[in-house]
Structure formats: structure tokens, C-alpha cells
């Protein structure tokens, strides 16, 4: 029963992602219907703690965490082609903001501050590294996570004498609401960026950065600011999520897996579409939780197999598959008439 609740809410999340993509298109037919459905979906999502068992919204919180990481990752890396492995760093900065300041200031302020600190870190890192191309950029962002982990480890052992920290816990429903709020804010931000000329600038940078620069686009400026905006959301997600975990240390806070997963989830869902990464992370995250609890020994193996299959047979991910099936149905219809 509770699994059904989770699946209904997953569908609601995917719908929101699809709606953003649809609103970006020129096709405005039936928009009143789709907008009405958005309200329904939002009601379903926001009232989940009222009708669903605790397990269901804890599960959806985890899904939302991956959603925020993946969608914000894809917002920058999708159009520009700059593959960042820094999500774990920004997420971890949020976690540590919470761990250090959680006792002293209100919850929402902690979350916001976690986002702001990540934003600042991303500005600095971006200004230094976004001149790097291809592999060099990937390696640097990867190194950043390792650097922060070890720097923090050194600091904790040298000055506090302990490796980890306790985090002030928050209620499961509070965490859920805040995480949902962050995700919706992210969708709105993504919509604004994609619809504005920044979206076009990001695409042109991905297509041909040199030409973009000669067309009057401040390529470094655009890249750094969008990179930092996406880090803002990752930091907020880290700050709220850690209130569920109560104890953290540098290794668990800056887990590199959280850098790889957004990339995998986005590819799995289909990077050419806005709702692709949404679809990818919702399904991926659900499978991960399910497999982890029910088949703890084979879950990573199953993951690997699914990923290889997707990369080999579905170059445009799940969203691409949906498109293909749709096109086939449309063709059949035409053939019949």
C-alpha cells in the first residue's frame, strides 16, 4: 500500500518535470488542462505526510534529494557539455553548514546558508576552472571533492579531536516539506533560465564556445553564474538532508558517489530532454532504495547492468525511448486512417 503512495508521488514529480518542458515549447494547446493538473500534483505531493505512512515520505524525500542533485547538475552540464563531478562537494558544504550551525540558527536559515556557501564556493571554483576544457575540468571537479574531504579530516582531527559531528535532527515531515520546496524552486529557476537568453547562451557555449564568445557572449561569466546557481540548490539539499542522518564525518558528507549518481541518472533518463533527468532520477532512486533493502548483495551489480544496457541501446535515455514509442504509435495511427 505504502509503495503505491510512493509510486503515485513519483509520477507527480515526473509530471512536474514534463510540465516545465512542455511550457518551454511553442505549442500552447491544452495548457489550461496541463496547468490544472499541476495544481492537482502539487496537492498530492504537499499532503503526502497527511495520508501516507512515514515510510512513504521518507522514501520520497530520498528521491527528491537525488532529483535536486540531478536536475541541477543537468541544468548546467546538459547544455554546456562541461561534465562536473563536484555535486558531492556542494552537497557536502550544505551538510557541514548544518552540522556546524544547526544548533544556533533556525532551520530555514541553515538551509539557505548552506545554499549560499555552496554558491560562493562554486563561484570561486568556477572562476578558476571553467577556463579548463573537457577532461581537465572533469578531473579538477573530481579533485575538489577529495581536497575538501581531506582538508576537513585534517582540521577535525587536529582542532576538534574527533572525526565526525552530530547534527541536530529534524522531523521527517519537516525534512520532506523543505526538500519538496527546494525541488519546486529548482524547477521554477530552471524554467526561467531556459526561457531567458541565458538558456540560449548556455546552449551556444556547448555547441561552439569560441563562436559564442565572438557573438558578444561573456562565456566565462555565463558559465560561472549558472554553475553557482546549480550549486546553490545542491548545498540546500545537503543542509536539509543531513538532519535525517544525525551523525556525519568528512567521508560520508563528501561521498563521491553523490557526484557520479547525478551523471548516471541524467544519462539514464535522457539528457536531451528537460524531464529526462527527472524521470531518470525518480526511477533510479526508487530502484536503488528497493534493491538496497531487498537484495543488498546484488544491487550494485544490477545497477551496472542496467546502466550498460541504457548506454548501449538507449542513447537518448528513457525519455528518448518514450519519444520513440510515441512516434511508432502515431505512425500506426496514420497507417490505419
Amino acid at each position: 500500500m505504502s509503495d503505491l503512495m510512493v509510486i503515485i508521488n513519483m509520477l507527480a514529480l515526473v509530471y512536474l518535470g514534463w510540465f516545465v518542458e512542455r511550457s518551454l515549447q511553442k505549442n500552447k494547446s491544452k495548457m489550461w488542462l496541463f496547468s490544472g493538473l499541476v495544481v492537482v500534483m502539487l496537492v498530492i505531493l504537499f499532503t503526502l505526510p497527511n495520508y501516507g505512512p512515514t515510510y512513504s515520505y521518507i522514501m520520497v524525500t530520498t528521491i527528491l534529494m537525488y532529483l535536486v542533485l540531478t536536475v541541477s547538475w543537468a541544468l548546467f552540464s546538459g547544455p554546456t557539455g562541461y561534465i562536473s563531478l563536484a555535486p558531492a562537494a556542494f552537497f557536502g558544504v550544505g551538510i557541514y553548514t548544518s552540522a556546524v550551525l544547526g544548533k544556533d540558527i533556525p532551520l530555514l536559515a541553515v538551509v539557505l546558508l548552506g545554499g549560499i556557501l555552496s554558491f560562493v564556493l562554486a563561484m570561486i571554483v568556477g572562476a578558476l576552472t571553467l577556463r579548463l576544457k573537457g577532461t581537465y575540468f572533469i578531473m579538477f571537479t573530481f579533485g575538489l571533492v577529495l581536497l575538501i574531504t581531506n582538508l576537513l579530516l585534517w582540521y577535525e582531527i587536529k582542532f576538534t579531536g574527533t572525526r565526525g559531528r552530530f547534527v541536530v535532527a529534524a522531523g521527517n515531515d519537516t525534512i520532506y516539506y523543505v526538500m519538496l520546496g527546494i525541488f519546486i524552486l529548482l524547477l521554477i529557476t530552471a524554467f526561467i533560465i531556459k526561457r531567458s537568453k541565458f538558456g540560449l547562451a548556455l546552449q551556444s557555449i556547448g555547441q561552439n564556445e569560441e563562436a559564442a564568445a565572438h557573438m558578444g557572449i561573456n562565456v566565462t561569466g555565463v558559465k560561472v553564474i549558472v554553475f553557482a546557481i546549480t550549486a546553490f540548490f545542491m548545498g540546500m539539499a545537503g543542509a536539509i538532508m543531513t538532519m535525517k542522518w544525525t551523525y556525519i564525518d568528512p567521508y560520508s558528507a563528501f561521498d563521491l558517489f553523490r557526484s557520479f549518481l547525478p551523471v548516471l541518472m541524467a544519462i539514464f533518463g535522457g539528457m536531451r530532454y528537460f524531464y529526462g533527468p527527472v524521470l531518470g532520477s525518480v526511477i533510479f532512486a526508487y530502484l536503488e532504495e528497493k534493491l538496497l533493502t531487498e537484495f543488498p548483495y546484488v544491487y550494485k551489480l544490477a545497477f551496472g547492468i542496467v546502466l550498460i544496457a541504457v548506454i548501449l541501446y538507449l542513447p537518448d535515455g528513457l525519455a528518448g525511448l518514450v519519444d520513440k514509442i510515441r512516434a511508432r504509435i502515431a505512425r500506426k495511427k496514420n497507417a490505419l486512417t
Binding site: S204, Q207, A211, A212
Partner: peptide, 15 residues
Amino acid sequence: KIFGSLPAIENVRIG
């Protein structure tokens, strides 16, 4: 050095 996957009109609009 065009923006290959963007429509021609978008290429010009960027300018």
C-alpha cells in the same frame, strides 16, 4: 563554427 543543433534562426538571434 556554427551552433550546429540549433535552428538557423536561433544562430542569428544569438548574435
